[in-house]
Amino acid sequence: MSKGNRDRKAAQARRIVEQQKAADKRRKVTIWTTVAVFAVLIVAGGIGWGVLANQDKKTEASQVTTPSVAVDEGTAFAVGSGPVTVDLYEDFMCPICNEFEQQTGSTIDKMVTDKRITVRYHPVAILDEASNGTKYSTRSAGAAAAAAQDGKFTEYHKVLYANQPEEGSDGLTDAKLIELGKSVGLGTTFEAAVNDKTYDNWATKVTETFASRGYNGTPTIVVNGKQVEGPNNTLPTTAVFEQAVQAAEG
């Protein structure tokens, strides 16, 4: 064997060993990075699960103060005594809810007075993110529960809409919520309940019930179990709402 030939063979062998080493390294890196990816995803999923479990504790029965006057599994306040049930799911931060109140509120009041309908108001909190972290939706729903407990739900409901803060603002302060309560004749129990956030977890619970019933947006208007909407999921006009009530009356 010539020297040149032997050198070539040795170089070839070295190259093969290097290639194998590189392939080995590649395989090891692939295995470990794969393990790492799945580990990271499992941990992340576990964190989500844990945070949810922690949040769910808020709505456990022992953590929720349900106003004794609440109806419908303790999630709503009934106004009126008519045969047709109207369920109104609304968020006090929601401008369209206010629009519905301005547009159809007086019609609803009249139907209540005429003993045609029973309105069940469900104050839900789906717009907590729209008040710069002050959770106005939850706070206002909790305050409404405190007002209901002291027999002034309808009055407080109206005054909350009349003073509705702009979506995306800080919302009304607790002090302002209390001031509005006093303006409709609510007293110190109401004030204490707002300051102690007595009914805030209850508001979360109401929101859960709302979602579990398959509703997503506010206002959701349900007449005798049937959702009432305008064309293309828009807000129903007063006429559409009246027709729905008439249909339910049979």
């Binding site: 992340a44 999923g45 964190i47 989500g48 699960w49 945070v51 949810l52 949040q55």
Partner: peptide, 8 residues
Amino acid sequence: AVQPFLEI
């Protein structure tokens, strides 16, 4: 609850 954490 899990999805946002997985996405991040």
